[in-house]
Design a protein around this nucleic acid. Structure first.
Lengths: 227, 227
DNA sequence: GTCTATATCCCGATAGAC
DNA sequence: GTCTATCGGGATATAGAC
C-alpha cells in the first residue's frame, strides 16, 4: 500500500492500485467523461507516461475500475441475501442493494454504464459480472418455475428478469439524476421503493408474459384482494 | 429551409435550424459526448465561430435539441393515449411509447439523459417537459385516488409514479445498452414488456406504499389467484 | 450573420534515456 | 518502472474584418 501523500515519487509503491483509486476519486468529482489519464497522473505526482506501464490505454484502466465495481457490488450483496429463503425476498434485497450501491458508490456505478467500454475487448468485466447475474437469475428461475399458471416458463423468466432489472436500474438512475444521491433519506426511500416494486412485479408476474391483445381491452383491474 | 449540399456558404439559410439538425445527426453517429460544435460547423461548411451567432455556447445548442426531444415525444404520445379511457391503459401506452421513442429517436433520448445539461440554466427544457409530466401524473393520480385500500393517497401516487417512471426508463436504457436499439423486433418486445410491467405495477400498487417491516419477514406471496 | 485568424487549453500516446 | 520531451490531434471561445 503506497502512501499517496508521502512527498516522494512513485518509484516504488503500487502505482497500478493507486491509479485505480485515483480514477475512482476523479470520476467522483468530474464524472467518467471528465476523467483523464493525464489528470490522474498529475494528481499522483507521476509523469503522464507512467500509467502506460500498467495499462495499455485509458479504457484498460477504466475496465479495471469496472471489475472492482462488480466485485464490490457482489460483496455488498452477499450479507443481504444470506438470511433470506424466499426467492422473492432475495430479489427484493438484490434490487435494494443495487440502488444503494449506485448512490453510495456512484463513481463505480457510473463506470459500468457511462464509460462506454467495449466488453468484447475487456472480457474481465463480464467475468466479474457473472456471479452476480447468476445469483439474480437463480432467483428468477425459481419463481417462474413454480408458477403453474404461466406459459413456457423460460419465456416468463426472461420477462420477469428484464422487468426487475429495468426497475432497479431505473430507480438508481433517476435517483442519481435527481441530485439526491448524497441524501441518505432519499437514498433509503428509493431503495425501499425499489424493493417494493420488485415484490409487486413478482406478485403480478402472471401479467408479464402474455401474447397480449390490445393490452388493456378491459383493464387488468386492481388485482384480486385489493379492495 | 437551407440546402446543406448546395456548395454555397450559409450566408443566408437558417443556420440555427441546420445546426440543430446536424447536432442530432452527429449525436446519432458518435453519441452526445462525441458531439462538438467544431465538427458540426465543419459538416455544415461554416466557420467554427458561426454557431456563436445563434447559441451562446455548446450547451445552449444541446438544450435546444432537448426541447425538440420533449416536443417530439409528446407528439408521438398523443395519438397513442387519445382513444384510451382507463388510466391504467393510458399509463401503459405512455410507457410503451417512451421505450419506442428511446429506440427510434436515440439521439434525442440521449440528449435528455447524457448531455449533463444544467436545467437551472436552461428553463426551456423543463417547460417543454411539463405537458408530458402533467399527462403522466394525471393518470397516476386518478389511479391512486380511487383506491380505497391505500393510506394517504398522495404518498402512494408518488410511489406509483416513481415505479412506473423507473421501469419505463430502465427498459429503455437496457434496450439501448444491449445494442438492439435498431432491431425492430427487439424494440417492440421491450416496448410490450414495458407496457405489461406497467400494468403489473398498477395492479400491485397496494404493495408499493407500505411502512414496511423487514419487507419480506414472511413473504408477500405469489399474490392471490396465482396458484 | 458569417469569415479569418488566433489564443488557450486539454488529451492520448510514443520514443528514448535512466 | 518511471521520467523527460514531444508529436499530433481536437475543442471552446473571442477579436476584428467584411
Amino acid at each position: 500500500m503506497p502512501r499517496p501523500g508521502k512527498g516522494g515519487r512513485y518509484h516504488h509503491g503500487d502505482l497500478r492500485a493507486a491509479l485505480i483509486d485515483t480514477a475512482i476519486e476523479l470520476i467522483g468529482e468530474r464524472g467518467v467523461r471528465g476523467f483523464s489519464l493525464a489528470e490522474a497522473s498529475r494528481r499522483l505526482g507521476v509523469a503522464v507516461s507512467a500509467p502506460y506501464a500498467h495499462f495499455t490505454d485509458r479504457d484498460d484502466l477504466l475496465a479495471a475500475v469496472a471489475v472492482r465495481a462488480y466485485e464490490q457490488l457482489l460483496a455488498e450483496l452477499m450479507p443481504d441475501i444470506g438470511g433470506l429463503q424466499e426467492p422473492a425476498d432475495r430479489l427484493a434485497a438484490i434490487a435494494r442493494a443495487y440502488v444503494r450501491f449506485a448512490a453510495t458508490s456512484r463513481p463505480l456505478f457510473e463506470v459500468l454504464y457511462e464509460a462506454g467500454l467495449d466488453k468484447a475487448r475487456h472480457p474481465e468485466i463480464e467475468a466479474a459480472e457473472r456471479p452476480l447475474s447468476d445469483a439474480f437469475l437463480d432467483c428468477v428461475r425459481a419463481l417462474s418455475g413454480d408458477d403453474p399458471a404461466g406459459g413456457s416458463s423460460g419465456e416468463m423468466a426472461d420477462d420477469l428478469a428484464t422487468a426487475i432489472e429495468a426497475t432497479a436500474h431505473g430507480h438508481a438512475v433517476l435517483l442519481l439524476d435527481s441530485g439526491s444521491g448524497q441524501d441518505t433519506d432519499a437514498v433509503e426511500l428509493a431503495a425501499e421503493r425499489t424493493a417494493r416494486a420488485t415484490l409487486a412485479l413478482v406478485a403480478g408476474r402472471h401479467l408479464l408474459g402474455r401474447p397480449a391483445g390490445p393490452v388493456g381491452a378491459k383493464t387488468p383491474g386492481p388485482s384480486p384482494g385489493d379492495a
